[in-house]
């Protein structure tokens, strides 16, 4: 689905990541960890073509990102749900419209999907907040709304960048629960986090691999976390 081959990424001279190779298999569950500034966000951005690698190849759904034009990238992103730590919404539209945004921009009829939308909102526990504006949401609600928006197109892959960074432990657990459920439905999940407790909590429920960025390289972390 997402394939990185000898990828290197450098910003203005300094190399942040080098010689990274990884294949995300369908249905896999990955954690990405490492110290702050190690390049977790950069790594995820490479995975949804927000950044182009300075060397090597990134393939999204078997197409090299360098061979994709901007429209191809837009289409690929409809198959990749992204959740950021500081998630952004269209602040002038209610939560329901924001969650349905991927449907709207891809030209799907949101009326046809209104049942789906309601189910999804109650699944993430935001049914009562559907008409609220994003700035009125709490941190946890924002993260769950972001997750709902990321999955409404039924994407093949979900990339989450520090999804629990701004929320308390209980809410983190709940969010993790939702991601685990998505994985059981066959979605490929990749979560960047430095929260080791979260990784431990997940280990009991799902077969997760832990990747670690250290010294510009990607390593498979030991099973003894």
């Amino acid at each position: 689905m997402i394939e990185l081959e000898n990828v290197a990424m450098s910003y203005g001279g300094g190399e942040l990541l080098s010689d990274i190779s990884l294949q995300l298999a369908p249905g896999s569950f990955h954690f990405l960890t490492g110290p702050s500034g190690a390049g977790k966000t950069t790594f995820l951005k490479l995975c949804y073509a927000a950044l182009m690698p300075t060397a090597g190849h990134v393939r999204l759904f078997d197409t090299d990102v360098r061979a994709m034009d901007r429209d191809d990238i837009a289409l690929a992103r409809r198959r990749i749900g992204v959740v950021h730590q500081d998630v952004q919404f269209l602040d002038h539209l209610p939560v329901a419209d924001n969650v349905a945004l991927p449907l709207t921009v891809s030209g799907r009829d949101t009326l046809d999907e209104s049942v789906n939308l309601r189910e999804l909102l109650s699944w993430v526990g935001l049914k009562a907040r559907a008409d609220a504006l994003p700035p009125e949401l709490s941190g946890g609600e924002r993260q769950r709304a972001a997750l709902a928006r990321a999955v409404i197109m039924s994407p093949d892959v979900i990339l989450a960048d520090e999804p629990t960074g701004n929320i308390d432990w209980e809410m983190s657990q709940r969010l993790l629960q939702l991601l685990v459920e998505l994985n059981r439905m066959g979605k490929t999940i990749m979560i960047a986090t430095h929260d080791l407790n979260l990784i431990r909590a997940a280990k009991g429920q799902v077969q997760a691999r832990v990747l670690r960025i250290a010294g510009r390289r990607l390593q498979l972390a030991g099973a003894d976390l």
Partner: peptide
Amino acid sequence: AQVIAVLRLVGARDSY
């Protein structure tokens, strides 16, 4: 800029 970034993230085409 934020609106545009959000729209790009959720897969909106430039033309849209």
